[in-house]
């Protein structure tokens, strides 16, 4: 059962990703990105990481991509003025290199393996919460500062007049 679900959601994720990368209009890419994010969330659930899946949907799909959509609408480049994509040498090489990278990763993955077993409850609310507020407290606090910086930075950059 698990295998079937894995393959299903994995395929959706991969196809979604490919569509994200290949669309002409950014809006289409954004929508496919949402699809991919949802598929990944499902994969998280498969590994008993419920909390993370929820955060993925709420934050990633629900906020970040929405932000993307806002910006796309704000910028509003007309269809005819969108950048034309050509297949240059660098690009072809880039695709090839990425392919190589995936292959290498596959080989690596086979070699440096982990014990097969039932999914430990790593991504649940309890586990993440406990870890976050005890072992990784500093990281948590710094992340809050990081978010503050990001907020201020985003506002400062996007304002018309400071």
């Amino acid at each position: 059962m698990e295998t079937v679900l894995f393959i299903l959601f994995g395929a959706i994720a991969v196809c979604g990703a490919i569509m994200v990368v290949t669309r002409k209009h950014p809006m289409a890419s954004a929508l496919y990105l949402i699809l991919t994010l949802f598929a990944v969330a499902a994969l998280f659930v498969l590994r008993q990481a419920h909390f993370l899946a929820a955060v993925q949907v709420i934050v990633y799909a629900g906020a970040v991509v929405v932000l993307f959509v806002f910006v796309i609408m704000l910028i509003n480049v007309p269809e005819d003025r969108l950048p034309v994509e050509r297949a240059t040498t660098t690009r072809v090489l880039g695709v090839l290199a990425a392919g190589f990278f995936i292959l290498e990763s596959a080989v690596l993955a086979r070699r440096f393996s982990m014990p097969i077993g039932p999914a430990a409850e790593v991504g649940t609310v309890e586990t993440v919460g406990r870890a976050l507020f005890t072992d990784y407290l500093l990281a948590f606090e710094i992340t809050s500062v990081l978010l503050l910086a990001a907020v201020i930075g985003a506002i400062a950059l996007a304002k018309r007049k400071i």
């Binding site: 990703a17 950014p26 796309i72 950048p83 690009r91 880039g94 990425a98 990278f101 995936i102 990763s105």
Partner: peptide, 19 residues
């Protein structure tokens, strides 16, 4: 790795900043 690789292809290949 596959997801990552596709993402990399997108960064290297596409001209549109949003994408």
């Amino acid at each position: 790795a596959i997801l990552f690789g596709i993402g990399v292809v997108g960064v290297v290949t596409r001209k549109n900043v949003l994408i």
